[in-house]
Computed example of a mutant assay.
Amino acid sequence: MPTYLYKNTDTGEIYELRQSMRDDAYTAHPESGVPVKRVLARPGIAFKGSGFYANDSRPREKSGDGGGEGKSAPKAESKGSPSSKGGGEG
């Protein structure tokens, strides 16, 4: 069962209460009966940086050799061609 945060509406004290996801939110503390309100908390895990989105998982220029997809190899070659443009007139 998940743990939810509840705040005492009178004193501001925070409680961690376990309850089923199917149950309605508590309006009073189950043991003491004081009025409580559910508090939204940040998740315990945060995905930061590159590699967590659909567009980050596609092969890049360097990994185009081992991508295994026929479509990604020509794109990698065409992206490599701007280096030849840099050598000429720009």
Rank of each mutant, 00 (worst) to 15 (best):
P2I: 07
P2E: 11
Y4F: 15
Y4A: 02
L5A: 11
L5T: 12
Y6I: 00
N8I: 07
N8G: 06
T9R: 06
D10W: 02
D10F: 06
T11A: 02
G12F: 06
E13T: 15
I14K: 09
E16N: 12
L17D: 01
Q19G: 09
S20K: 15
M21D: 13
M21P: 09
D24E: 11
D24M: 06
A25C: 10
A25S: 14
T27G: 09
A28K: 05
A28C: 02
P30G: 01
P30E: 02
E31T: 11
E31A: 12
E31W: 10
V34K: 01
V34T: 07
V34P: 01
P35I: 04
V36K: 00
K37E: 13
R38Y: 04
R38G: 00
V39E: 11
L40Q: 05
A41K: 06
A41C: 04
R42C: 01
R42A: 04
P43G: 06
G44S: 10
G44W: 04
I45M: 13
I45T: 15
A46I: 09
F47T: 14
F47P: 02
F47N: 15
S50K: 15
S50L: 15
Y53F: 09
Y53G: 05
A54P: 14
N55E: 08
D56M: 09
D56S: 14
R58S: 07
R58W: 07
P59Q: 05
R60Y: 05
R60I: 06
R60T: 10
E61M: 03
E61C: 03
K62Q: 10
K62N: 10
S63V: 03
S63R: 07
G64D: 01
G68T: 11
G68V: 11
G68M: 05
E69K: 12
E69D: 13
G70E: 07
A73T: 04
A76Y: 01
E77P: 01
S78E: 08
S78V: 07
S81P: 02
S81K: 03
S83H: 13
S84L: 15
S84Q: 15
S84C: 10
S84H: 14
K85G: 06
G87E: 14
G88Y: 07
E89P: 00
